[in-house]
Amino acid sequence: MNPIKDLQKLIKLTGERAKLDAKANETYIVYKTAEGQIVKEYNDGNVIPVAEKEAPHA
């Protein structure tokens, strides 16, 4: 077993599960892009950057 590949697989599965939960609950997921921007992604594929004023402890 390769621990790095195992960890990458778990991370991918966690993200996929979050998307399924967001779809079931009609909500969104929040994540940080490769560029460092925090965004909300809705079930319809709409991705909206989170404004700094929205972050509670920026």
Rank of each mutant, 00 (worst) to 15 (best):
A34W: 01
T14L: 06
N25V: 00
L7H: 13
D6A: 07
E16L: 14
A24Q: 15
T33P: 02
I38Y: 11
N25F: 00
G45E: 10
G36M: 12
T14I: 01
V50D: 06
L7K: 13
E16N: 12
K5L: 12
L10P: 03
L13R: 13
K32Y: 00
N43D: 11
P49T: 13
T14D: 09
Q37K: 08
V39E: 05
K32W: 00
Y31E: 06
V30E: 15
K12G: 01
I48G: 05
G36E: 07
I29L: 09
V39L: 04
A51T: 09
L10Q: 12
I11M: 05
R17F: 07
I29W: 01
N46L: 15
V47P: 09
N25L: 12
I48C: 05
L7S: 05
D44S: 15
Y28E: 11
K40E: 03
I29G: 05
K12A: 11
P3R: 02
Q37Y: 01
T27Y: 00
P3C: 00
L13Q: 15
D21T: 13
V47F: 06
A24R: 09
K23A: 12
L20D: 13
N25S: 12
V50T: 04
E52W: 04
V50A: 05
K23L: 11
V50I: 15
T14G: 02
V50G: 07
K5Y: 03
V47W: 03
N46A: 08
N43C: 04
I29K: 00
Y28G: 04
I4D: 02
G45F: 01
E41A: 03
K5C: 00
E26G: 11
E35D: 14
E52H: 07
K19D: 04
D44Y: 10
P3G: 05
G45K: 04
E41M: 05
A51P: 04
I11A: 11
I29H: 02
P49A: 13
K40H: 02
V47M: 08
R17M: 08
I29Q: 01
G15N: 14
D21A: 08
E35S: 13
E52A: 10
I29S: 05
K5I: 11
R17N: 07
K40N: 04
N43E: 07
L10C: 07
G36T: 12
E52P: 02
E35Y: 03
K9Q: 15
Y28V: 05
Q8M: 08
K32M: 03
L13T: 12
A34K: 09
K5S: 10
Y42V: 10
L20F: 08
R17S: 02
V30S: 01
T33F: 00
G36H: 04
T14E: 14
